[in-house]
Write a protein that binds this DNA or RNA. Sequence first.
DNA 1: ATAATCCCCACTATACACATAGGAATAGGA
DNA 2: TCCTATTCCTATGTGTATAGTGGGGATTAT
Lengths: 146, 146
Amino acid sequence: MKLTTKMRYGTRALVDLALHQDQQPVPSGEIAERQQMPVKYLESILVLLRNAGFVRTTRGAMGGYSLAHDPADISLAELFDVLEGPDALVACTDGPDCDRYDGCVTREVWARMYAASREVLEETTLADLVSRAREKQHASGNMYHI
Amino acid sequence: MKLTTKMRYGTRALVDLALHQDQQPVPSGEIAERQQMPVKYLESILVLLRNAGFVRTTRGAMGGYSLAHDPADISLAELFDVLEGPDALVACTDGPDCDRYDGCVTREVWARMYAASREVLEETTLADLVSRAREKQHASGNMYHI
DNA sequence: ATAATCCCCACTATACACATAGGAATAGGA
DNA sequence: TCCTATTCCTATGTGTATAGTGGGGATTAT
Ligand code: FES
Ligand code: FES
């Protein structure tokens, strides 16, 4: 039960973008370098984020990625739905996909687990992470390393 | 972020054992048939459960598996630790394994997620699942299908 | 002895994580 | 305008872990 790298990298990428949204669009190479993640893999995640409407892209020289919305309006739960998918945790959390659905006793436990996890994500916005990152930057004097 | 089959199968296997613990030791073939899971794969999971002290094994003819403790004394969290491992959710939830530990802002969120999930598992015992299974058996008239 | 059963080892299949290669679009200068 | 560097975009290949398969040996009740 590991959180996928899509979710972890995607979250860090959005935080990085939020920290630099006052400037020009940020190229994927800069994000990858700062966040220490493989460039090409990051780009494949940014495609998902673009299709889901989290980021805007500008092609060509001087192009890059920028946030499409205010960080305070983005909860990690929305991100989770896109990057982990609706079938997260177990396939049969929210519907009778499984042929054993009626007699299943474990499903309810996994569903409670899922709900508890999701509640944490619901109440955390991108802006929360950004302000926490700014605090840490201030404390350590390290500009870019979040 | 999928729950592994080890955890899902393992849980169902223990519930199945609890429902039949009044009888002889239960052979893996019976569990696999009732629970609709691959025999050989189930056996590899039962090895883990034996090593962790959840089940006792009896070798030879008329042998099989039986619970080592009272179902009320087994929380799903203990099972989780064995079958999903201590590094569940993310590798750096409980220690400075990661070289980015100090500046990391996402770790705290993942840690809260992990704690919330685990709390659900802590407060659910095998006996809870068993009684729920008995209710469902009674309601449907289906003896073995949990 | 025989059949039933656990147990160990090695093999295959599938999904995820990541790398590589190249193409398409755009900004900026000659 | 045309060229070129920069950047996003798409497709395909590779490594690794999880999931599942299979054969055969060890142990024990009958
Ligand atoms: S409903 Fe599918 S395994 Fe429980
Ligand atoms: S502490 Fe390792 S990624 Fe955050």
